[in-house]
Every structure is written in structure tokens, then in C-alpha cells.
Simulated scan of single mutants.
Amino acid sequence: MKRASKKLPIALVTGFDPFGGETINPSFEIARALDGATIAGHRIVGAELPTEFVRSLPALDALLRKHRPTLVIALGQAGGRSGISLERIAVNLIDARIADNAGAQPVDVHIVENAANAYFSTLPVKAMLSALRTANIPAELSQTAGSFVCNLVFYGLMHRLARARRDVRGGFIHVPFLPEQVQKVPGAASMPLMTMIAALRLCLETALTTKDDLHYAAGATH
């Protein structure tokens, strides 16, 4: 993989550490694999965030201050999903079905008090979806990023960009389990790591080169 010059503008890709009893998290494996790559004239910085309600956004803030990226894509693991999920909406809600890695399990609380109920991704999600499907990579637009730490980071990112960095595009993508995570569960959905890395390269290239998103029907009925 071609390594990038440090003088190039930066696109930030984040992933999470393992959680919920897993020993690996594909979201960070993708971010780690892309770290240092050159895509569409940008240097990719891949970084890990803690799967913790209290620590994840301060860690994101530190990365934003250090790298001042022109694009941010946060990644998360969504076990059970079979394709790349391009998230459209972050909601101002935490309702944790399980505890995070610090043992915290907030229920029915706002991420930011007295702030917007929701934010939309500013990534060209339909153009990204089209690129993925053209490459025969399973993908979908998703209307919910859940209510765990993934949604917290998605909402927190968009809240920060809306307030201080409107020139920076940002959003969130969920990825499936790796095959090794479901090897004891016959028929369970998964995707090879190399396919997910290729998918994110496509997403980054599309987001960095597409000014106006495509306009076509890609919604859901449920």
C-alpha cells in the first residue's frame, strides 16, 4: 500500500476497540490497515477509540485537534448485519442494552443537553452506496446507528462539526462481523477483512471526490 506524505490534507478514520466479549473489532482493523495510505490526494490517519461512553468523545476531540482533518469517517461494528451500512442519522440518545468497556450502562439520557435531536451525515452516502454496489460489495443505507457508543460518537462528531467545522464532512459507517467472529455460528453474517478494507477505500475516494450526492431512491419501508 502506498504511504502518504505528511504534507497532504488528512482524512481521519476511526474504529473501536473490542467490546461485548469479543477479542477483535473489525472497525479498528480497517482503520489500522488504512492508516498512512494516500487516497484522492489525502493522507489517511487511522485511529482507535475506546468503546466507553465517557472516554470516546474526548479521544475523538484529541484526534480532531491534532490532525485537523478535512473528512472524518467513524467506523463501528454491527454484528448481525451482512453488508456495509452507511448511516444517515445520529440521534441525541443513549439507551445502552449492554454495558460499555468501563461497565457503564446509561439508559434514556441525552448525549448533549439542550442540543439538536438528530444530525444527518454530511457524507455523500448515496454516491458511496452506488460505488460499493458497482464493486459488488454488499451495502445499504441505514436509518439508525443504534443507541450505544457508535451512535454517541456519530452524534458527537456531527455536533462538533456543525458548531465549529462546517467545512468538514463527516459521518458513520457500520461494518459486519469478521468470519472468525462467527465461526461457531453456522450461517451467521460476516464479511472478510480485505473486502471491508476495499469498501472503505471506495467510500473514502468517493467522499473525497464527490461534491454533490446522487439523487435516487434508496430508502427502506421498515
Rank of each mutant, 00 (worst) to 15 (best):
V185N: 14
D95I: 11
G170R: 06
N25I: 03
P26S: 06
E22Q: 10
A207M: 05
E205T: 15
I10L: 06
D212K: 15
P106G: 12
E48M: 12
H67E: 07
A162H: 04
G20L: 05
G20Q: 10
K211P: 04
A139W: 00
D108S: 15
P106W: 01
A198K: 05
P179S: 09
S130G: 11
S56C: 14
A62V: 04
F16G: 07
Q143A: 13
H222G: 14
P58G: 10
A217T: 10
A78N: 06
V107L: 10
I89H: 02
T23C: 05
P18N: 09
A62L: 09
I30G: 00
A145Y: 02
F28R: 07
G21V: 03
S130A: 12
R68V: 13
E205A: 14
T70W: 03
P26I: 09
V109F: 01
N117S: 15
G46I: 00
A102D: 15
H215G: 11
S5Q: 09
A220C: 12
V91D: 02
G21Y: 04
G187P: 02
F28Y: 12
T38V: 10
N136S: 13
L208R: 08
H174Y: 05
F154N: 08
A78L: 08
R201N: 13
A218K: 06
I137W: 02
D213W: 03
M128H: 04
F19Y: 13
R163P: 05
T122A: 06
P9K: 08
A199M: 05
T122S: 09
A99I: 09
R133T: 15
S85D: 15
G170E: 00
T51H: 05
V91N: 05
N151C: 00
S85Q: 14
N25S: 06
P58S: 14
P106D: 08
R160Y: 08
P18M: 07
S147A: 15
G146Q: 05
R169M: 08
V107P: 09
D167V: 09
Q143I: 07
P124V: 08
G79Y: 01
R166N: 15
A78G: 04
L214A: 15
H174C: 11
Q143K: 12
G80L: 03
F172Q: 06
A189R: 08
R55S: 12
H67R: 01
F120M: 14
V54W: 02
F16K: 09
L8W: 01
G171C: 04
A96R: 05
I39D: 05
E205R: 13
L34I: 01
G156W: 03
S56V: 12
Q181L: 06
K66R: 13
C150M: 02
Q105R: 15
A96W: 02
C203N: 02
R169D: 06
T23W: 05
T122V: 11
C203W: 02
A145F: 02
V54R: 14
Y119A: 09
K7D: 13
L161C: 11
R201T: 13
M191P: 03
S27W: 01
D108K: 12
D213I: 09
